[in-house]
């Protein structure tokens, strides 16, 4: 089958993966945002499935998640919205990111089936334990052609990184430093440098994207020195908070990150 994730990494450099919360700022914004982000140069889309208790997220995504839930977003509504996904963004890899409980209540297999049916490429479920994934869900993911993306942190041991690398065939999500998403404290630059170099030296089979705390062009460019690209989420959500026209604001945001030279449109 068409492997959009592999194609993206094979054909592009310095990939920009953009996270946004489904159903935010308004319920029907999901697809118009996806379209605007891709047209402005986003290389991968990560659509957040809002959850009441997002443990790995900072205040910005906590707020966008509660707002999306208050707008009426839930998994049946999301899959209904995503029916037109591939008509709107034909080739861009799309990931769904969220927490396990809503997926469990929806039914894991039903969730995977619907995600595959609307053209989703992969999933980021940070609280799905690796053992559980390996034993119970890996075959199901494969059956539906969905890729699992795993997080790696500065504290993750080499043995565990190798296991994560072996179990994934998408990319590894390198968490830039300690903290939840949207962190504003600057990590120790030297420690971070060593961490990225340590990962690079492992010669992993999967490409890497760096995320958490990357908010602007400078942060993006710096991350690209150490990995195939980077992930931006909270900074975009912040820009959308008071946006009159969310898609136009999102497009402006992405153009600001990707320099004119690197832009593909």
């Amino acid at each position: 089958m068409n492997n959009r994730i592999k194609n993206a990494f094979a054909s592009k450099q310095n990939l920009l993966n953009v996270y946004f919360t489904a159903g935010y700022p308004r319920l029907p914004d999901t697809l118009p945002l996806a379209k605007a982000l891709v047209e402005a140069g986003a290389d991968i889309l990560e659509i957040g499935m809002p959850f009441s208790d997002p443990l790995a997220d900072g205040p910005v995504i906590q707020r966008s998640s509660s707002a999306a839930l208050a707008n009426g977003m839930n998994l049946p509504v999301l899959f209904e919205q995503l029916r037109e996904l591939r008509a709107v963004v034909p080739e861009t890899p799309v990931l769904l990111m969220g927490y396990l409980n809503p997926v469990l209540q929806f039914g894991v297999e039903a969730f995977l089936r619907q995600a595959a049916a609307v053209g989703v490429d992969g999933l980021i479920l940070p609280d799905l334990p690796l053992d559980e994934y390996e034993e119970r869900y890996h075959p199901l993911f494969q059956q539906y052609g969905l890729k699992a993306v795993f997080l790696v942190t500065p504290q993750t041991s080499e043995a565990r990184i190798r296991r994560l690398d072996a179990l994934s065939d998408a990319f590894l999500y390198l968490v830039s430093g300690p903290g939840t998403t949207g962190g504003t404290t600057l990590p120790d630059a030297e420690a971070q440098q060593q961490y990225f170099e340590r990962i690079a030296a492992l010669n992993l089979k999967n490409p890497r994207l760096i995320g958490f705390g990357i908010a602007d062009k400078m942060g993006f460019d710096r991350a690209c020195e150490h990995a195939e690209g980077a992930i931006i989420g909270s900074a975009l959500i912040r820009a959308l908070q008071d946006a009159e026209d969310a898609p136009a604001t999102a497009a402006r945001f992405v153009r600001g990150i990707k320099s004119p030279v690197a832009r593909s449109v």
């Binding site: 208790d53 839930l69 998994l75 396990l100 409980n101 809503p102 209540q105 929806f106 609280d127």
Partner: peptide
Amino acid sequence: TPGIIHGSRTLLMQDEHGQIT
């Protein structure tokens, strides 16, 4: 009903979509 809260699979109060109430 069974679900996940604070890292544990247990009984918890939640809505039909798995949002904790």
